[in-house]
Design a protein around this nucleic acid. Structure first.
Lengths: 82, 82
DNA sequence: TTAAAATAACATATATATGTGTTTATAATG
DNA sequence: CATTATAAACACATATATATGTTATTTTAA
């Protein structure tokens, strides 16, 4: 598969999303593995979202937000303007 | 493909998401076709989201929220508790 | 330098996004 | 009521991408 980034025109947005998720995770002192375990998703998937390799789905976002004990919309709080 | 629903354990959540999207769309007096045109996504896709046939992605949600002139988080406002 | 964490590089099943055409439902109108 | 138009649902098919898995390499921290 080689190094990849999401192809979407929303690449920058998805990068910001990943960066924000990483911050939320680190603020909680969680490793990718910790969060993956808590959210019950594969370890690698967290890294892939962090690095904007995927344009993830509602259910994955929901699993992550639950694991972080935040509302799903908090995952988008990096984006203060519409 | 026959009648389908998302298989995710978040099926109910995704149904609520779709129902909420339908309300937002109708509040703006938009047909599925109108919204699809504004968001530059296929006509059918709006209906599929409405009916919870898909577990949609960030980029699709973003396209829709832009077309509705709302913030992406508003698509989750049906869900007041975490 | 050792261990832990994260990145990368493969591969694959399943699902999203898309497209086209048909059928059904809803609304408007003569 | 019948008819027409519009909107939405349904049924099929397919390219691409997400989610997943495994292993190896690199980075970071202890």
């Amino acid at each position: 598969m080689e190094f990849r980034q999401v192809k979407s025109k929303d690449q920058k947005y998805i990068q910001a999303f990943g960066k924000h998720l990483r911050k939320l995770r680190k603020d909680n002192d969680l490793s990718q593995e910790d969060l993956a375990n808590d959210a019950d998703i594969p370890i690698n998937q967290i890294g892939r979202i962090d690095r904007a390799e995927v344009n993830t789905t509602i259910s994955t976002m929901r699993a992550i937000s639950k694991a972080l004990n935040i509302h799903i919309t908090d995952l988008f709080n990096f984006d203060k303007k519409s």
